Computed example of a mutant assay.
Amino acid sequence: MGIPMFLRPHKVEHRALTGMGGGGPVYGPADTVRVRYERKTGSVVGKDGRTRTYSGLLFWPASPAPGLDDTVTYRGETHTVVAVDELVMIDGTVYHHEVKVT
């Protein structure tokens, strides 16, 4: 099930973080994902205890979820994923993810 397509009018380019190289982060190939993007600001505390500020919220399809520190490009601006919240239905199936980006 999940969020209907008409409620996900925006397209983003997602690149998963695959590791660290000598020049910094290394990302995999880009894939296009339909989401709903909202400009929203706030802060989240990560598992490492660091507080990170976000400037956008993406309503992401149920599967697959992006990982922390992956990149998302929307309208030419590249953002970094700082938090991923999973919204689950009463039967335990994932409805969608709320992804916070820098």
Rank of each mutant, 00 (worst) to 15 (best):
V94K: 04
L7G: 04
T41W: 08
M1T: 12
R15Q: 14
E38D: 15
L58Q: 02
V26M: 14
Y74L: 02
G23I: 10
V72T: 05
Y27E: 08
V81L: 01
D85M: 12
Y27D: 07
Y74T: 00
G23V: 10
F59W: 12
H96M: 08
H97W: 00
V99I: 03
L87C: 03
R15L: 04
G28A: 05
Y74V: 05
G22K: 07
L58M: 03
Y54N: 01
V45I: 09
F6G: 07
T53N: 11
L57G: 02
A62F: 00
R52N: 09
M5K: 11
E77P: 03
P66K: 01
R52W: 15
T41M: 11
P29E: 15
D85R: 14
T53P: 00
D48M: 03
S43K: 13
S63F: 13
R36I: 01
P4M: 02
V99D: 05
L17D: 07
K47G: 15
T53C: 06
A83K: 14
V45W: 00
V26Q: 15
P25A: 15
Y74P: 04
T73G: 05
G24D: 04
T78L: 03
G76D: 00
Y74A: 00
K40G: 12
D48S: 00
R8A: 01
G23M: 13
S43R: 13
E86V: 13
T32F: 03
Y27G: 07
I90E: 14
F6Y: 13
L68C: 06
K47S: 14
T80Y: 10
R8N: 02
R52I: 15
T18S: 12
T41N: 11
Y37N: 03
R8C: 04
P29C: 05
G22L: 10
G67I: 11
E13I: 06
G21A: 06
L68M: 12
S63R: 12
V81F: 01
G76Q: 01
Y27M: 10
Y37D: 03
D69F: 14
L57N: 09
T73H: 00
M89V: 10
V84M: 11
W60Y: 09
K100A: 08
R50C: 10
E86M: 13
D48P: 05
K100Q: 14
G28R: 03
T71D: 04
S63I: 11
L17R: 13
V44W: 01
S63H: 12
L68H: 06
G22N: 09
R39P: 10
V99H: 01
P25V: 08
A65C: 03
G2M: 07
A62G: 05
K100P: 05
D91F: 02
H10S: 04
T18D: 06
V101G: 06
I90F: 11
Y27V: 09
A16Y: 09
T32L: 05
K100W: 07
P61T: 05
L57P: 06
I3V: 07
G19I: 06
D70F: 05
A65T: 02
V88T: 08
G49S: 04
P25M: 13
R34W: 09
K100C: 09
A16S: 14
D70I: 02
M5N: 08
A62M: 02
F59P: 02
Y54D: 01
L17P: 10
K47A: 15
T53Q: 13
L58N: 02
P29W: 07
M89H: 12
P9T: 04
